[in-house]
Nucleic acid binder design. Structure first.
Lengths: 197, 197
DNA sequence: TCTATTTTTAATCAAATGTTTAAATCTTTT
DNA sequence: AAAAGATTTAAACATTTGATTAAAAATAGA
């Protein structure tokens, strides 16, 4: 029968894998890095997860949900107005990204490289959402996909660009966090301005 | 003395390296992939470029300039208004990104991983630009960095997210290009709305 | 043409890497 | 406590990978 320690070792490996994969990507990660970071014997990684690829897929699924899962929660809220949803999305994303700044670059870059295949019919999820209905009423001229690109661009892009902007001397770590906290309040205003444009 | 063919072989390797590095990233790229893609013997890569890292740095520098270099050209144009600069930037970026859709994810993800160190004082370049002056006059309340984050987010993010959005069924290749061509005209309008918000 | 130089090739090297094995250790069950 | 099962360990394996070497081929200069 399973002993208590098992879950703990498995979780230690996953925790280390989250950090190393997120920082170095799939190809840049060595299974030995994960083992060392987790403080476990290398063979345990294969004992618990069979292969690097399988472990990666578990982590990646978590991360994709973390990056995009929040959207549907907000979009399907039938108790809030469109304007309130913009506030909620901005707060949700900025707070989450301040805690997980490497998340977007990791997920989007790995998806681009095809190391992970996921099939979520987000198009249908969005088009049948309360958000889509409200958007159609308020700004019938606005293509929903264009607006979602814009909203996510405003929210997520600064985190993707941060390492570049830091190297360019445009911002430092402390200044960036402060900029993002200010931004959380500005983006809903800007998004509304875009809807009215 | 150098013979004519030399430049050609060297350029074949660089051309292949551009493709493979951009598609798979530094860690995901095997020198053998580049050699095969270039149709040359593996040893020639080291003969011409000494190492994978050195070859990568040459390509990366090109790509960073390609991604960000256009900005300063537009920002320092003293013959155009701020509004015209927004049009120029949108056209410049959308056209370039439609031809190089993998560029932003590649550059920003490699910069995030620290595989490449570059020192360009872009902060100073921006703050002393005509663009910065015009922005200060037109929208003194707008922090320039916030606006640049927004402008680049609107322009660049859709290309970074494309592989994800394709997997999610939000768009296909043809639909995406059309969306981006429409977007090229919309972003200047939206950017002005943000400045007036 | 003959020689020196540059370019190209096939083979090889040493280190790194994902995974497996077999034995040892620990835990649970009886 | 003994047996059975689960977990952990050290060592090893087979490939892959970036790089080098030494010889061959091509080119340029005399």
């Amino acid at each position: 029968m399973k002993k208590l320690k098992e879950a703990s070792t498995e979780e230690k490996i996953k925790e280390a894998a989250r950090r190393v994969f997120t920082e170095k990507g799939y190809s840049g990660t060595r299974t030995r890095d994960i083992a060392q970071e987790a403080g476990i014997n290398l063979a345990l990684l294969n004992y618990y997860f069979r292969s690097k690829q399988k472990l990666f897929e578990e982590i990646m699924l978590e991360k994709v949900i973390k990056l995009f899962g929040g959207l549907s929660t907000v979009f399907y809220n039938s108790d809030s107005s469109l304007e309130e949803k913009l506030d909620e999305v901005a707060e949700l994303y900025i707070d989450m990204l301040l805690k997980n700044p490497l998340l977007p670059t990791f997920v989007l870059s790995e998806l681009a490289k095809g190391h992970f295949v996921i099939e979520i019919p987000i198009k249908d999820i969005i088009s049948s959402s309360v958000f889509a209905q409200q958007l159609k009423v308020r700004s019938p001229h606005m293509e929903p996909i264009q607006f979602i690109f814009s909203l996510l661009g405003l929210l997520v892009f600064p985190f993707i660009g941060k390492p570049a902007f830091k190297q360019f001397g445009l911002t430092d770590e402390k200044g960036f966090s402060e900029l993002m906290r200010v931004r959380r309040k500005l983006i809903p205003v800007w998004a509304k301005a875009i809807l009215d444009a």
